[in-house]
Lab assay of single mutants.
Amino acid sequence: SFNTVDEWLEAIKMGQYKESFANAGFTSFDVVSQMMMEDILRVGVTLAGHQKKILNSIQVMRAQMN
């Protein structure tokens, strides 16, 4: 498990989005775990492969939080 959203993004090789997530207010796992595709688009993730990777990881995160 990760301590910060930045660490999580690095771990899934999506570190290039750290600033975008932070600027959009997605700075805690409570918020990130609620993200939908529209949120991912809003933070500027436009590549389908990256969207899928982030969404898949969020689903895993949700499962671990319950």
Rank of each mutant, 00 (worst) to 15 (best):
Q16K: 07
A24R: 06
K18W: 08
E10H: 06
D39E: 05
S1D: 13
V5T: 04
F21K: 00
M37A: 11
N3T: 12
S20V: 08
L55S: 05
N66G: 13
A11Y: 14
A24K: 08
F2D: 05
L55H: 08
N66D: 14
M37Y: 12
L9V: 02
R62T: 08
V43P: 00
G15H: 08
I40F: 05
M37P: 12
V60Y: 12
S20Y: 07
V32A: 02
G49L: 13
M36C: 09
E7Y: 05
E38T: 11
L9N: 01
E7F: 05
E38Y: 07
W8Y: 02
T4V: 05
N56H: 13
E38R: 09
N56Y: 15
G44Q: 03
T4E: 08
R42I: 11
G44N: 04
K53A: 15
N3R: 12
E19G: 09
Q64C: 09
V5N: 00
A63Y: 07
K53L: 15
A22N: 08
E19N: 11
S1V: 13
T4M: 05
N56K: 13
S1Y: 14
F21M: 04
T46N: 09
R42H: 12
A63C: 11
T27H: 09
G15Y: 05
A24N: 13
T4Y: 06
F29P: 04
I40T: 03
V32G: 00
R62P: 04
L9S: 01
A48K: 14
A48D: 15
A22F: 13
S1I: 14
T46P: 04
A22C: 07
M35W: 03
E10C: 06
F26S: 03
F2V: 09
H50K: 02
W8H: 00
E38I: 09
D39V: 03
N23S: 10
D30I: 10
Q16P: 04
N66Q: 14
E10Q: 07
F29G: 03
V45I: 11
S28N: 13
D39W: 03
V45E: 01
L55T: 03
G49A: 15
G44M: 02
A48N: 12
M36S: 15
N66R: 02
S28I: 04
S28M: 05
Q64R: 04
S57C: 09
